Amino acid sequence: MVKIDNITLPDFPLLLAPMEDVSDPPFRVVCKDNGADLMYTEFISSDGLIRDAIKCRKKLDFFEFERPIGIQIFGGDEDSLAMAAKIVDVTNPDLLDINFGCPVKKVAGRGAGAGVLKDLDLMVRLTAACVKATNLPVTVKTRLGWDDDTKNIEEVAERLQDVGIKALAIHGRTRCQMYKGEADWTLIGKVKNNPRIHIPIIGNGDINSPQKAVEYKNRYGVDGIMIGRAAIGHPWIFREIRHYVETGELMAGPTLEERIAVSKKHLHESVKWKGPVQGINEMRGCYASYLKGLPDIKQFRARLVTLKTEEEVVEVLDEIEKYYKGIELAAAPIELIDYHQNCPL
């Protein structure tokens, strides 16, 4: 098993990455159902929490069945980040995570997220301030460095461990790469195999199949992996990886019935969480992924994105299940979309 302070996770845990406008409670529900071992909230601005911004405060909410769960915050000021950590402390999640990896310009450009990678001393001070401000285990998610000339993750790992973090998740790209090119896990492996490092090291970046997860587990020796974009529209990836890790055999993809059931559950949780208008509107972009591979599905998708009530959507989903019953679903590779393209930040 893997221990993050007092949190016990299974061997080679599978973590759901924090993704802005993706990792909300409705999405976390279907990922938890399908085997995510540890999940994180969407990242939350420390300044927003202090100002009592409604959207930021709402992101603090989670349900008991989601545990273990971490709340992720970001910011570039020590006092603000420490105060935000105290606010998070009151909500009693299982851990507090600091985002030093978000590459979006409006975050990194104002010295938060991956912007902190330009100033390692500041990163250490911010982390130490959080550790001192909360009773929760503090973890960090970051990248290899700001650009190809500043891949300083090995130094970062040692220094952050020294000020008290309990685990480190590393995305195998620099900030300047955004999500371009292929994630390089070589330095992640070096951090893990550094004899000075004793905290869990979680690898992140481009894991989109069970085979790749096990290959990287064996090649780089990481304690676990964090999955982000591959889970969008395919929450089954957690159970598929777990099955392959434990048996060495590939698991069959989700059945039509499972796809419809997850679509309905995600919809129901979205309406319950956000209200009927926002909940239904925000689900419209999810059906393409959940129903991918069904022949001539466009005719149904065109209807799904115009409906205004949960009951109407469920009726069409039932119709789809009946229409395609008995059709063998073709397996398709999981696409790693750049969800930041639609991110309001």
Rank of each mutant, 00 (worst) to 15 (best):
I7G: 01
T8D: 15
D11Y: 07
P13D: 01
L14P: 06
L14K: 03
L16F: 03
L16C: 03
E20C: 11
D21R: 12
R51F: 06
I54S: 10
K59R: 07
L60D: 11
L60F: 10
I69W: 02
F74T: 01
D77Y: 06
S80T: 00
P93D: 06
L95R: 03
L95A: 10
G101P: 00
K106R: 14
V107T: 00
G109Y: 09
L117G: 09
K118E: 12
M123V: 02
T127G: 00
N135L: 10
N135E: 15
K151C: 02
N152W: 03
V156L: 14
R173I: 13
R175S: 09
T186S: 14
I197V: 11
H198W: 13
I199C: 11
G205Y: 04
S209P: 10
E215P: 11
N218C: 14
N218F: 07
A230V: 08
A231N: 09
P235Q: 04
I237G: 08
R242Y: 08
V245C: 10
E249T: 08
L250W: 07
M251W: 05
P254L: 04
E257P: 11
E258D: 09
V262L: 14
S270D: 09
G275H: 08
P276W: 05
G285F: 13
L294F: 14
D296E: 15
Q299P: 04
R301S: 04
L307C: 05
K308G: 00
V316C: 07
I320S: 12
I320G: 05
E328H: 07
E328I: 05
A331Y: 13
A332E: 15
I337V: 12
Y339W: 13
